Lab assay of single mutants.
Amino acid sequence: DLRKKIVDLHKSGSSLGAISKRLKVPRSSVQTIVRKYK
């Protein structure tokens, strides 16, 4: 699940930009998912 991957990467200390590059999703999507998770 993409959300879980993003949250896991964020927990392990990756920046939003790094996560978005790695998973090839827009940075804004990463930000939204991380914000919802918090």
Rank of each mutant, 00 (worst) to 15 (best):
Lys11Thr: 08
Arg27Met: 13
Leu16His: 06
Asp8Met: 14
Lys36Ser: 09
Ala18His: 08
Leu9His: 03
Leu2Glu: 04
Ile33Tyr: 03
Gln31Asp: 07
Ile6Ala: 04
Ser15Trp: 03
Ser20Leu: 01
His10Ala: 06
Arg27Thr: 05
Leu23Pro: 03
Gln31Tyr: 10
Leu23Glu: 03
Leu23Trp: 03
Gln31Glu: 12
Arg3Glu: 12
Val25Arg: 02
Lys4Thr: 10
Arg35Phe: 07
Arg35Thr: 09
Val30Leu: 03
Gly17Tyr: 13
Ser20Met: 05
Lys11Ile: 13
Ser15Pro: 04
Thr32Asn: 13
Asp8Ala: 14
Val25Trp: 04
Ile19Thr: 01
Lys21Ser: 06
Lys21Phe: 05
Leu23Met: 05
Arg27Phe: 14
Ser14Asn: 13
Arg3Phe: 14
Asp8Ser: 12
Lys11Met: 12
Arg3Gln: 10
Val30Lys: 02
Leu2Asn: 04
Gly13Gln: 02
Gln31Ile: 09
Lys21Asp: 07
Ser28Lys: 14
Lys36Asp: 11
Val25Tyr: 04
Leu16Gly: 03
Lys38Thr: 10
Ser14Leu: 15
Lys21Arg: 13
Lys5Gly: 04
Val7Phe: 10
Lys5Leu: 13
Val25Lys: 04
Val7Gln: 06
Ile33Asn: 01
Gln31Arg: 13
Val34Ile: 11
Ser29Thr: 15
Val34His: 03
Ser15Glu: 03
Ala18Tyr: 12
Lys11Tyr: 06
Leu23Asn: 00
Ser12Asp: 07
Ser14Val: 15
Pro26Gly: 06
Ile19Asn: 01
Ser29His: 12
Ser14Thr: 07
Ser28Gln: 12
Lys5Met: 14
Gly13Met: 03
Val7Tyr: 10
Ala18Asp: 11
Leu9Ala: 05
Lys24Tyr: 04
Ser20Pro: 02
Lys4Gln: 12
Leu9Tyr: 06
Ile19Val: 03
Asp8Glu: 14
Ser28Thr: 08
Gly17Ser: 14
Val25Phe: 01
Pro26Tyr: 05
Lys21Tyr: 06
Ile33His: 03
Ser12His: 07
Lys5Ala: 12
Ser12Val: 06
Arg35Tyr: 08
Gly13Asn: 04
Thr32Gly: 10
Lys21Glu: 09
Val25Met: 08
His10Glu: 03
Lys11Arg: 14
Lys11Asp: 07
Ser14Ala: 15
Arg3Thr: 12
Ser29Phe: 15
Thr32Glu: 13
Ser15Val: 02
Asp1Trp: 15
Lys21Gln: 07
Arg35Ala: 11
Pro26Thr: 08
Gly17Phe: 06
Tyr37Phe: 12
Arg3Ala: 13
Ser12Arg: 12
Val30Ala: 04
Ile33Trp: 03
Ile33Asp: 00
Ser20Ala: 14
Gly13Asp: 01
Ala18Ser: 11
Val25Pro: 00
Lys24Phe: 06
Gly13Thr: 02
Lys38Gln: 12
Lys5Asp: 05
Ile33Ala: 06
Leu23His: 02
Ser29Arg: 14
Lys24Trp: 05
Val25Ala: 03
Lys36His: 11
Arg35Met: 09
Ser20Glu: 04
Val25Leu: 11
Pro26Ile: 05
Val34Arg: 03
Arg35Pro: 02
Gly17Leu: 10
Ser29Trp: 15
Tyr37Ser: 06
Ile19Trp: 00
Ser20Trp: 00
Asp8Ile: 11
Arg22Lys: 14
Val25Gly: 02
Pro26Phe: 04
Gly13Glu: 00
Lys24Gly: 11
Thr32Ser: 13
Lys36Val: 08
Val25Gln: 03
Val7Met: 12
Lys24Asn: 14
Ile6Val: 09
Arg35Trp: 07
Ser29Leu: 15
Ile6Thr: 02
Gln31Asn: 08
Tyr37Trp: 11
Thr32Pro: 03
Lys4Phe: 08
Lys38Ile: 13
Asp8Pro: 02
Lys38Arg: 09
Ser28Tyr: 11
Asp8Leu: 13
Gly13Trp: 00
Ile33Thr: 05
Arg22Gln: 15
Lys36Leu: 13
Pro26Trp: 06
Arg3Ser: 10
Val7Leu: 15
Lys21His: 08
Ser14Phe: 15
Lys11Gln: 10
Ser15Leu: 00
Ser20Phe: 00
Lys11Ser: 06
Gly17Ile: 11
Lys5Glu: 07
Ser14Asp: 07
Gly17His: 13
Val30Cys: 00
Arg22Met: 15
Leu23Asp: 02
Arg3Tyr: 15
Gly13Tyr: 00
Ala18Thr: 10
Gly17Gln: 11
Lys36Gly: 09
Gly17Lys: 13
Asp1Thr: 12
Arg3Pro: 07
Lys36Asn: 11
Leu23Gln: 00
Lys11His: 07
Ser15Asp: 05
Ala18Trp: 09
Leu23Arg: 01
Leu16Ile: 15
Ile19Lys: 01
Arg27Gly: 03
Ser29Gly: 06
Lys11Asn: 11
Leu23Ala: 00
Gly17Val: 08
Val7His: 06
Lys24Ile: 04
Leu9Glu: 04
Asp1Ser: 14
Ile33Val: 13
Arg27Ala: 06
Lys24Glu: 07
Ala18Phe: 10
Ser20Asn: 03
Lys5Trp: 14
Leu16Lys: 05
Val7Arg: 06
Gly17Trp: 11
Lys11Phe: 08
Lys38Phe: 12
Ile19Met: 03
Ile19Gln: 01
Ser20His: 04
Lys36Pro: 02
Gln31Gly: 08
Ala18Arg: 05
Ile33Glu: 05
Arg27Ser: 05
Ser28Gly: 09
Lys24His: 12
Leu2Gln: 05
Lys24Leu: 07
Leu2Val: 09
Lys38Leu: 13
Leu9Ile: 01
His10Arg: 04
Ser12Ile: 07
Arg27Leu: 15
Lys5Ser: 09
Pro26Ala: 11
Ile19Ser: 01
Pro26Arg: 09
Ser15Lys: 03
Ile19Gly: 00
Val25Asn: 01
Asp1Tyr: 14
Ser15His: 03
Val30Glu: 02
Val7Asn: 04
Leu16Ser: 06
Asp8Val: 09
Lys5Phe: 10
Val25Asp: 00
Ile33Lys: 01
Gly13Val: 00
Arg3Leu: 12
Ser14Ile: 15
Ser29Val: 15
Arg3Lys: 11
Pro26Val: 04
Lys21Ala: 09
Lys38Tyr: 14
Ile19Ala: 01
Ser20Gln: 03
Gln31Pro: 02
Ile6Ser: 00
Leu2Pro: 02
Val7Lys: 04
Ser12Pro: 00
Ile6Asn: 00
Ser15Gln: 04
Arg35Ile: 06
Gly13His: 03
Val30Pro: 01
Val34Tyr: 00
Leu16Arg: 02
Val7Ile: 15
Leu16Glu: 05
Pro26Asp: 06
Leu2Gly: 03
Lys11Gly: 04
Tyr37Glu: 05
Arg27Asn: 04
Thr32Asp: 12
Leu23Ser: 02
Val34Phe: 02
Lys38Asp: 08
Lys38Gly: 11
Val7Pro: 02
Arg35Gly: 08
Arg22Leu: 15
Ser15Gly: 08
Arg22Phe: 14
Ala18Gly: 06
Asp1Ile: 11
Val34Thr: 03
Ile6Gln: 00
Val25Ile: 14
Ile19Pro: 00
His10Thr: 04
Lys24Asp: 09
Arg35Gln: 11
Leu2Arg: 08
Gly17Met: 12
Lys21Pro: 02
Leu9Thr: 01
Gln31Lys: 12
His10Asp: 04
Arg35Leu: 09
Arg27Val: 12
Leu9Phe: 06
Lys24Arg: 11
Arg3Trp: 15
Leu9Gln: 05
Val34Leu: 13
Tyr37Asn: 05
Leu2Phe: 07
Ser29Met: 14
Ser20Cys: 06
Gly13Ser: 02
Val7Glu: 09
Lys38His: 15
Ile33Arg: 00
Lys38Glu: 12
Ala18Gln: 13
Gly17Thr: 15
Lys4Tyr: 08
Arg3Asn: 08
Arg22Tyr: 11
Ser28Val: 08
Leu16Ala: 07
Arg27Lys: 13
His10Val: 09
Val34Asn: 02
Ser14Glu: 15
Leu16Pro: 08
Ser15Ile: 00
Lys5Val: 11
Thr32Leu: 14
Ala18Cys: 04
Ser14Trp: 15
